[in-house]
Amino acid sequence: MARAAVLGRLSWRVADVVDIVEETSTARSLILDVPDWPGHRPGQHVDLRLTAEDGYTAQRSYSISSAPDGGRVELTVQRVEDGEVSPYLVDVVEPGDRFEVRGPVGGYFVWDPDDPAPVLLVAGGSGVVPLMAMIRTRAARGSPAPFRLIYSSRTPGTGVYRQELRVRAESNPGLEVAFAFTRVPSTATDAGRRRVGTDRLRESGWPPDLGPTCFVCGPTGFVESISRLLVDAGHDPARVLTERFGPTGG
């Protein structure tokens, strides 16, 4: 864990939307320019606040998906069907729009780029977002820490970053990526590729005696299940870090 630091006062900053990347039919990445952004660590998030003309405000937390890069901050947002904020961010926001963010916040679910220990990342649906920040930071910093990502999504079409992850798995030494799909038709050959369980964690993860740090992020049920399986398999509970974002997830 990184050393504690006295932090400046947390204040709202105006963020300019400078670019948008459509990730899937229900998710997009917003690239923001945030003046005076203090920098972030991979895994941290921001609070985002929208203010309506009548003064009504709505506030949510979103994980940062980018590596630290000056005032450029990327968020990837999945539309939640009955949501109040995410439909606006996914369907309405355009480059040139502005809203407020504060952060970065959260010091628990954070990877330390100076830590050479192996890392296992396990993502359920859009839980891959903060893990992507770790993968991108690893590459940007030239970290030698060996990384393995197991990324579970419903179907190939619902996963974000798929193309970038394929490219990085080829070009980033020491990064391995395994996809799992929970809703593809069952056949003899892909049966083992479905829901992530003990076998998959053993095949595509790290043995506990290597002392890996495990980051698990996704819907609550997914995170509860995976973290329990990792601890049962012998991983140190203190090195199984979790972040849960609700029952609907991706």
Binding site: L10, H45, V46, D47, R60, S61, Y62, S63, T76, V77, Q78, V80, G83, E84, V85, S86, R102, G103, V105, G106, G107, Y108, F109, G125, S126, G127, V129, P219, T220, T242, E243, R244, F245, G246, P247, T248, G249, G250
Partner: peptide
């Protein structure tokens, strides 16, 4: 990512 966080990470702000 989703609209509702359900662990203490989301209270950081």
């Amino acid at each position: 990512m989703s609209d509702t966080w359900v662990d203490g990470n989301g209270l950081a702000g």
